[in-house]
């Protein structure tokens, strides 16, 4: 025998969403105001020196002359200078009165349309290799002075600081700036263990290359 369907169907009332909607709509402009879609980072720069880039030997350590390394960005490439060493001899290149030049290099660049064009840019990889060589020779030196031609755009100085900040891991391929880009984005840097205070846990940090940068203020 078939059972009769009950006429009393339980009616479920919908939740009144209007007050919640009002609240959420009020929250959106507030949150939107505080939202920053661009992530801002910081690049620290040491207090600049006034005058031409030169460093006097320290009184307490007369035996070891500081390197006093300067990287100058010009329209035709980098120029490496040091007050404490003959860089031409160090790198085994031809001596130049101004220092060691790293000329611009031309490489293939594929633009937005996918067309390959020639792009002349700074040779950041060669700069990195030379600075790594100097770091191995002068382990105690920390300061790198950066200078540029007056009309050079500031973004090139930031790029140079990015390249010279940390030592890349040994397995990083260095054929083009794209390789450095990939390594930097994946934080493929050499690591060093630092012991914590009073027997605390040791922390691992990236091995610096020339991370203390100052700008030379030339009058």
């Amino acid at each position: 025998m078939a059972r009769k369907k009950s006429k009393f169907v339980e009616e479920v009332e919908d939740i009144n969403l209007i007050p919640i909607m009002n609240l959420v709509l009020c929250l959106i402009p507030l949150v939107l105001f505080k939202t920053q879609l661009v992530k801002i980072g910081m690049v620290n720069v040491s207090a600049p020196k006034v005058g031409p880039a030169s460093s006097k030997p320290q009184e307490e350590d007369k035996d070891k002359k500081p390197l006093g390394l300067t990287v100058a960005l010009g329209k035709d490439g980098f120029l490496l200078k040091a007050t404490g060493a003959d860089l031409a001899t160090v790198f085994g290149v031809q001596a130049d009165a101004n220092g060691v030049k790293i000329p611009m290099k031309t490489e293939d660049y594929s633009n937005k349309n996918g067309d390959v064009e020639k792009l002349t840019t700074y040779d950041y990889i060669e700069l990195y290799k030379k600075l790594l060589q100097l770091r191995e020779m002068y382990e105690d030196d920390k300061l790198l002075t950066l200078t540029a031609e007056p009309e050079l755009e500031f973004k090139y100085l930031i790029r140079t600081m990015d390249v010279v900040r940390y030592q890349f891991a040994d397995d990083v391929k260095m054929a083009s700036i794209a390789d450095l880009s990939e390594a930097a984005n994946n934080s493929k840097y050499k690591k060093v263990e630092e012991e914590g205070d009073e027997g605390g846990k040791s922390t691992s940090t990236y091995k610096p290359l020339w991370d203390q940068v100052t700008f030379a203020i030339v009058q």
Binding site: I40, A47, P48, L119, T121, R159
Partner: peptide, 23 residues
């Protein structure tokens, strides 16, 4: 800024920027 007794400088940059070939 140095003359006005500021001694520590920080530059604001956009983080996570790739080292693009063309900048």
């Amino acid at each position: 800024a140095g003359q006005a007794s500021f001694t520590k400088f920080k530059f604001a940059v956009v983080k996570g920027g790739q080292l693009k070939q063309k900048i």
